[in-house]
Amino acid sequence: MNAKVTLEKMSVHFGANHAVKGVDLDFAANSVTAIIGPSGCGKSTLLRAINRMHDLVPSARVSGRIMLDSHDIYERSIDPVAIRRKIGMVFQKPNPFPAMSIYDNVIAGYKLNNGVQRSVADEIVESCLKRVALWDEVKDRLKTSAMDLSGGQQQRLCIARTIAVQPEVILMDEPCSALDPIATLKIEELIDELKERYTIIIVTHNMQQAARVSDATAFMYLGELVESGATRKIFTTPEKRQTEDYITGRFG
């Protein structure tokens, strides 16, 4: 299996706080990798480093290397905005743009990047909404506010918005933490379908979820990568004591 994204000795500092400590990790293409660990272990921080979201925080400093198809995305000459088009992100809470309709939300990233013809836009909106299984629910009210949708629908809309930009990697930061079990299930099914086309990295505090959706799992603790490997192996025969303690619920 070839690695789509590779972290080499990757560290994140916020001022004097060392949040992620020298992580080496591969994320395989067309698969789902889950990052688990107790809250505050640095898993979200690591995730946000992968599409350069820390660029916005003046005190944040990312060191080491993050490779996308063997190009270092933190190299000086690289355009961070272009990186984020290749590496999309879905957030904890669904965050559709409140001033835009459902239709405009899906096409937002695309339109703001390229400008787009009407007929092309219609096609993109339809195919993206179909891929997230939202089309049948909203096709009659595409021009209404995205805020009228339920939480689960909003999150699927946000995923549609992300894939409309045609990324290669999708980062998901606890995408189901604000959703009810049924909505969660739908998102998980969606993740399973999406991995055919995209490389998915998901941060979750829910171990059942990690076990259900991921092919590989990485366990982080106190900013360090403790252990990573095939999900089945991590959940059945972990090598490290800390991993076993966490998975069996002895701490966290």
Partner: peptide, 16 residues
């Protein structure tokens, strides 16, 4: 599919 495509780095424009 998108996943088959390889990432080609885009350079930062000098005055973005």
């Amino acid at each position: 599919t998108e996943a088959d495509s390889r990432y080609e780095p885009e350079r930062r424009r000098p005055l973005g």
